[in-house]
Amino acid sequence: MSTTMSPPEQPLVDGLAEPLQVLDPTGSRHPCPPLDEHLGDVDENLLTDLYIDMAVIRRIDHEAVALQRQGELGLWPPLLGQEAAQIGLGRALAPTDFIFSSYREHGLAWCRGVIPSELLSVWRGTTFSGWDPHERHMATPQIIIGAQALHATGYAMATAAQGGQEIAVACFGDGATSEGDVNEAMVFAATFDAPVVFFCQNNQYAISEPVTVQTTVPIALRPTGFGIPALRVDGNDVLAVRAASLLAARRARAGGGPTFIEAVTYRMGAHTTSDDPTRYRDDAELERWQRRCPVRRLERHLEQLGAPVASIREEATVRADAVAAELRQAVTTMAPPEPQTLFDHVYTGEHPTISRQRAAQEAFAASLAEEQP
C-alpha cells in the first residue's frame, strides 16, 4: 500500500491500495515501510505471547457460545476471526489508555485483566455493567451503535484540558461509521486535536448488511474528510495491527491529535448467537476468509522462525483450558441480584427521584410480604 505523509508524522491512506500488511496468510514477513519502525521490539517471546493471547480469547469465544446454547447466557456476540485486530490493539496500548468499546471487544477486555465473572455477568443478566471502568481503564460494553466514539472523544478532550497524558481509544465496527455519533465524534476530535484513536474493525458485515452497502470506497477515506489521518491495515495480521496502533497511540500522546485505523478483518461467526449468517453469506466466502485465519497465520510465522511451535501450542491449550474452566465456574456462582440493587449506581450520589423510586419499591415488596399466609 502506498501512503503519503502530510505532515511527515501524519499517515494518510491511499484509497485505491490494499491494506498494509506485515505477515501474509502463509506466515511470511514482508517489509512494510510505514509500520516497520514500530516493529523493532518483535522477537520470539513477543510473538509467543501474542499467539497465546489469540488462542485464549478464541477459546473464551467458543466457550461462551456453548454456554449460551446451553441456556446459561442470554446472548453472546462472537469475536471469532477478529482475534488479531483485538490483541494487536490491546497489546499496543499503555495501561492507563482508556478504551471505549462496543459489545464484541472481549479480547480487549482480556488484555485489561477482566475476569470471567465480570466478562459474563452482563450476558448472564446479573448486572448492568460487568466491571469497574476506572479500575480496568476500559468502559463497559456499549450496546448503542457508535455512541462510544463520543464518549472516547469527550474523555480525550477532558484529559487534554486537565494536562493529563492518557489517551482514549474508540472501538467500533464498519456499520457504526454510518452513524451520526461516530461522525460527530470525528468532528470534535479533529477540531480540538483530541488525543483519541478511532479503531474500526471492518468485519465486512453490519449484522446482515455487507460493507459495500455502507460505503463504495474504503472506510479509512471517511475520516480524512474531517482532517483526521488514517491507516488501513490487514486486521488478520496481528503485527500490522499492533504497529499501526503503536503509531496512532504515540502520535496522540505527543499532541498530534486523532488518528483513524481501519482493520480489515472478517467475522467468521454470527453477529450474535441469535443471528443466522447462512441467510446472507455463502460457504465459499467463509472458506476464503478461513484461509486468512489470524491465529494460524501467526503459527505459520513461528514455524518459519524455527520456534518450538508444539510447545507453544501446548502452553496455549493449557492456558485456554484453565480460562474455559473459570468461565464455567463463574456461571454457576452468579446469583440473580436483589431487586433493590436496581437503584444503585444510577448517579454518583443519591438523587431525590431515585430515593422516591427506591422507597416505592420497598413499600411494594413489603405489601407483598404482608399478603403471604
Rank of each mutant, 00 (worst) to 15 (best):
A194S: 11
S121T: 13
A139E: 08
G154R: 10
G154S: 03
T127V: 15
V114N: 10
A189D: 02
A160F: 10
I167F: 07
C111Q: 05
L120E: 06
F188Y: 12
G180R: 11
F100V: 00
S102A: 15
I167A: 02
G113W: 05
A190T: 09
A152W: 05
Q165K: 13
L150P: 02
A189C: 04
G180Q: 06
Q142K: 05
I145Q: 00
A156Q: 12
S117V: 13
I143W: 03
G164P: 00
F98R: 15
Q165Y: 01
R124M: 11
L120W: 11
A149F: 02
I144V: 15
W131Y: 15
V169N: 07
E135F: 12
A149K: 05
A190N: 08
E179F: 04
M138C: 13
A152K: 04
G175A: 01
I143Q: 10
T159F: 11
M157H: 04
F188I: 08
I115S: 15
A158I: 08
P133Y: 09
I115H: 14
S121A: 14
I167Q: 03
T140S: 15
A158Y: 04
E105Y: 02
A190H: 03
G125V: 06
H106S: 14
F172K: 08
M186F: 00
A185E: 04
I99M: 01
R112Q: 10
A161V: 12
F192D: 00
S121L: 04
E166F: 10
Y103F: 12
E118T: 09
G163Q: 04
P116M: 02
G146M: 07
D132Y: 00
A156G: 06
C111T: 06
F128Y: 14
A149L: 02
G125T: 11
R104W: 09
I115N: 14
A168I: 03
A190M: 08
D193N: 15
P195K: 11
L120T: 09
V187C: 10
S129I: 13
S178R: 07
A194Y: 05
M138V: 00
Q148E: 12
L119R: 09
W123E: 14
C111P: 04
V196K: 07
H151M: 12
S121N: 04
S121D: 12
M157I: 14
G125K: 07
S101M: 13
M186I: 03
E118H: 13
S129N: 12
H134C: 04
W110G: 07
